Amino acid sequence: MSRTALLLLADGRFPAGGYAHSGGVEAAVAHGAVHDPDSLEVFCRGRLHTTGLTAAGLAAAAAAGHDPLLLDDAADARTSAPALRTVARRLGRQMMRAARATFPSAELERLSSARPQGAHQPIVLGLATRAAGLTPVDSACAAAYESIGGPATAAVRLLSLDPLHVSGLLARLGREADGVAEAAADAAARAMTEGVDVLPSASSPLLDITAERHAAWTVRLFAS
């Protein structure tokens, strides 16, 4: 069951709202940074090792049993752009709805009551994986994959890229994604005794800037 649960959580068809977001790639396409499979791979690799690592650490810590409210505050501190905080909580609300229906648990119910405006998505993901009987490294793996899978899928729509080439791109990044997940899970284990400050806090200032600009667009295909 745990393996099936991990596949479900990492599946783009899981109704957690991620299909409506591009992970910043729509803005990157608009200013020319992403225009073909090679530039998309560079974008995804950068996202994986920055915001992806940070999200994976938060998800792993939630799955390990760390206080989710404290982690939600830590996520706020690690998300400097207001537009991205809004997106993270919007995705958190949608994932909470899906997770409560699929993997009901008292921890999800408590977080939902404490954060009616929505908790950050990685925290909800971590509690969902915990409720599904998965491990912190499983949770980190799902978060790491999501950090590249979402933008890659969006780029197929935005640039009409060959889906086969994009799948190959994701496969090439697989070993790096595994490494990010393992590093995130190690940090989450340390956080249980050393506090949340040891969790990853990597960032991507360009993604922060373009997220704010993207939020002001009047016409866009994706919500972020």
Rank of each mutant, 00 (worst) to 15 (best):
92 G>Y: 00
43 F>W: 12
91 L>I: 11
20 A>W: 01
33 A>T: 10
206 L>F: 05
48 L>W: 01
34 V>C: 08
7 L>T: 11
132 A>N: 05
103 F>Q: 09
219 V>N: 03
2 S>G: 15
215 A>C: 01
121 Q>H: 15
1 M>H: 07
59 A>F: 04
111 L>V: 15
89 R>V: 02
186 D>H: 13
167 S>E: 15
193 T>D: 10
120 H>L: 04
85 R>F: 00
26 E>T: 07
41 E>S: 09
26 E>W: 05
36 D>T: 13
167 S>N: 13
129 T>H: 00
110 R>S: 14
111 L>D: 05
151 P>T: 11
3 R>A: 12
178 D>I: 13
85 R>N: 07
106 A>S: 14
216 A>H: 02
148 I>S: 05
45 R>I: 07
193 T>F: 03
107 E>Y: 05
107 E>P: 00
147 S>Q: 05
149 G>A: 10
176 E>K: 08
91 L>A: 10
55 A>D: 13
155 A>L: 08
44 C>G: 00
42 V>Q: 12
30 A>P: 06
158 L>G: 11
55 A>Q: 07
144 A>Q: 01
84 L>Q: 10
106 A>E: 15
173 L>Y: 06
118 G>P: 05
115 R>V: 13
48 L>K: 05
178 D>T: 14
25 V>N: 01
86 T>S: 11
171 A>M: 12
205 P>A: 02
84 L>Y: 03
177 A>T: 15
9 L>K: 01
108 L>P: 08
215 A>K: 06
97 R>T: 15
43 F>A: 11
88 A>W: 05
57 G>T: 02
79 T>W: 01
111 L>N: 07
33 A>K: 03
63 A>G: 06
137 V>I: 14
76 D>H: 11
160 S>A: 15
154 A>G: 00
50 T>L: 06
62 A>F: 10
197 D>S: 13
93 R>I: 09
47 R>F: 08
94 Q>T: 15
191 A>T: 09
118 G>T: 02
28 A>E: 11
49 H>C: 13
141 C>E: 12
79 T>A: 06
114 A>D: 15
91 L>W: 05
50 T>Y: 06
